[in-house]
Design a protein around this nucleic acid. Sequence first.
DNA 1: ATGTATGCAAACCATTTGCAATGAC
DNA 2: GTCATTGCAAATGGTTTGCATACAT
Lengths: 163, 163
Amino acid sequence: MDSNQKIRKQVKDELTEYLTLHKHRKTPERFAILDHIYSTKGHFDMDTLYKSMIDVNFRVSRATLYNTIELLLDCGLVLKHQFGGNMSKYEKAYGNDNHDHLICTTCGEVREAKNEDLSIASQLKKIKKFTVNYYSMYIYGTCSKCSHAKKMEMKQKSKQGKN
Amino acid sequence: MDSNQKIRKQVKDELTEYLTLHKHRKTPERFAILDHIYSTKGHFDMDTLYKSMIDVNFRVSRATLYNTIELLLDCGLVLKHQFGGNMSKYEKAYGNDNHDHLICTTCGEVREAKNEDLSIASQLKKIKKFTVNYYSMYIYGTCSKCSHAKKMEMKQKSKQGKN
DNA sequence: ATGTATGCAAACCATTTGCAATGAC
DNA sequence: GTCATTGCAAATGGTTTGCATACAT
């Protein structure tokens, strides 16, 4: 709890600094959106974010949400993912452990998996002519639920084939 | 050249097997699209694929292209990427070295980087309750061209600030 | 002959854009 | 007071869908 408070203050300061440096305005919407993102857990999409802000009686337009997310991506406070569905998913950049994403190509569910592979960091350093901001590891496959469902389906089909 | 011929035959056979197994029809379109994909290099998007097939006088509709790509994704012959632009990119799954993707968040350019990190494979084996098909490593950052452009821009801004 | 796959055009929907009104500076 | 930012509504564009036709089986 306490550490979350600390992070929310840190990111607010970082946003302030970024806005000052880039001569952008410090609007209440920008800080409210950032804080809202950092007070919730896990992935979110625009629709979820929009509705959850309305829920706490903070009126924002979708346009502003998109504008602000763009800003937050720019200053590295938020990460964007496109796992394969129709809409983009986002997550906060700080206060998250480094993790891979397990994406089930059947049901679309995204699970996080801890990643303690330190050799990746050393690999990144070897990259030339490119300034690395962050990386994402997407692992595609089938979750246990869907694996099971597929097996059942195949059994059905092979039965029909015998008729 | 020769190895490419071999791969094209292999993937054709694999598609045939897949279609038979799943009781789908072996239409000329499906084989033509697969072969077309495997006779070109690097990433492609739907529009590029569509136009390049028209160019070689093979008439397909966009709808069929989308249907077929879905099929090829299903049987693992093609990989799909959403790097952050508006449209999805694809690449063939076989005959490509294992590589990471360096994505410039400024200009959107995607560069491939060789990846010989064998520890990743052993990491994947540790994942429970999930059947891994493939993985993609996306490394976001700024390419040297855009880094340079940004520096220039910052200089401009700080000059203006002094007026 | 049967029903799946194709092609076309219309529909969809997340995201972007244009513009008037607001408010940070 | 000025001009960036907001909010609304309309536009955009990649992708999906509905349906008549073609063709693999």
